[in-house]
Simulated assay, not measured.
Amino acid sequence: MKKKLSLTVVKTFLASILLIAVTSMNLYAEEWKYAMGEGVNDPQGIYATAFKSFIEENSRHTIKIYPVGSLGEETDMMEQTIAGILQFLGQSTGYMGGTISEMDLFTLPYVMPTDTKQLDYFFKNSKVINEMLPPIFLKHGLELLSIFPEGEMAVTTFEPFHSPQDLKGKKMRVMPGSPILVETYKAFGASPVPMTWGDLIGALKTNMVDGQENPTVWIEAYGLDNLTKVLTYTGHGHFNASASANKKFFNELGDRDKKLIRKAADHAHQVILKEAERLDAYGIGRIVRTNPEFKIVTLTESERAPFRKAATAVQESFASKSDSNKKILDQMMVDLKEAEAKTK
């Protein structure tokens, strides 16, 4: 009887331990929400997918990705992330300028290089990204995870242009939420029109705008080359994106999960650095093959000179808005010089 009782007690004890373990594991497993401003096959989508895969392969957590348009416009997703409804946010730095003014730094004309090696070094090693921006993000309720390039900006128009004078009076669509983009195209001689991505295609079809800017991966993927006639490389900038987490959510995680998220962000960053360059080249290559009548122009250095000159006023305007803006721009110039020297 004693042996039987002891065996029953042991079984009950082991079952209790197992139940507690299973319950704990189930409680530990969570589904996290990740919203972004692009489609799954676009650069932000590739980053998010790599991030999701790493998390799910190395933990019991799962991530649900919400592509562009699923949860409203860019500003809606930003508000939902800050409010804690969403755990993660992927968003263009251009859109973020309206909320975090320092992020307009990445939209300034003729500051970022077009050389991909320099860009890769900068995004990995920059003091601006690794030291200065994280505390700024925290003030806005966000934990910065990564900033990465998506491709060189190209301008598509109905007519060719080679100088600011050629753009005079032309209505150029710019991303909403970024005062710097408005200032940039005013400086370039055009009339900027802030407009959401969802309205852009209709605006081009009905001639409500005369042109727009985007990296070639977007121009090709969404047929913008079929809606305009000329693509021009002005060399004025890169399209960049960021990944961040809700601050409260991140702070309440255990050390293990915090490390997991950081490692996932590093992994996704490495993936997108390789993919972004490939997609950019693929975009322009496909346009050349499938749309031979579409004209592609690269402005010469002499043609870029007046645009560069006009850009200085925009850079000075950004720096004058706050001490934080000036400090971060000054440091970026130092970081970019280091990137150039290290990648020669």
Rank of each mutant, 00 (worst) to 15 (best):
K2Q: 11
L7W: 01
T8A: 15
V10T: 15
T12N: 07
T12R: 06
I17S: 12
L19V: 15
L19H: 07
V22C: 02
T23M: 11
T23K: 05
L27K: 12
K33G: 04
A35E: 04
M36T: 11
G37W: 00
E38C: 03
D42Q: 15
P43A: 00
Q44T: 09
F51A: 00
K52R: 14
S53T: 15
F54D: 07
R60N: 14
K64Y: 03
I65T: 09
P67R: 05
P67Y: 05
S70E: 14
M77T: 15
T81H: 04
I82F: 05
A83W: 00
I85R: 14
L86I: 04
L86A: 07
S92L: 10
M96E: 14
M103N: 03
L108D: 05
Y110M: 02
P113K: 01
P113A: 01
T116P: 12
T116L: 06
F123V: 08
K124D: 12
K127N: 12
N130Q: 13
N130K: 13
P134Q: 02
G141V: 06
L142I: 09
L142K: 07
L142Q: 08
L142G: 14
L144W: 07
L144C: 03
L145F: 15
L145K: 14
S146M: 03
S146K: 07
P149H: 01
T156C: 08
T157S: 05
E159P: 02
P164N: 06
K168P: 02
G169T: 12
G177D: 08
S178M: 06
I180G: 00
L181G: 02
K186H: 10
K186E: 14
A187H: 03
P194D: 05
W197A: 13
G202Q: 08
M208D: 11
Q212L: 07
W218Y: 13
L224Y: 15
T228M: 10
T232Q: 07
H236G: 00
G237L: 01
F239W: 11
N240L: 06
S242F: 12
S244Q: 05
S244R: 01
F250P: 09
D257R: 07
K259S: 05
I261K: 03
A265E: 05
A265I: 07
Q270F: 00
V271I: 15
K274H: 10
K274S: 14
A276D: 05
E277W: 02
L279K: 13
I284P: 09
R286G: 00
R289Y: 06
E293C: 01
T298E: 13
T300E: 04
R304E: 11
P306M: 02
F307M: 04
A311K: 09
T312L: 14
T312D: 13
A313T: 10
V314S: 03
A319T: 01
S320Y: 10
K327I: 00
L329Y: 13
D330K: 09
D330Q: 11
D330C: 04
Q331I: 02
M332V: 04
M333Q: 15
L336D: 03
E340Y: 10
K342H: 04
K344I: 12
K344T: 11
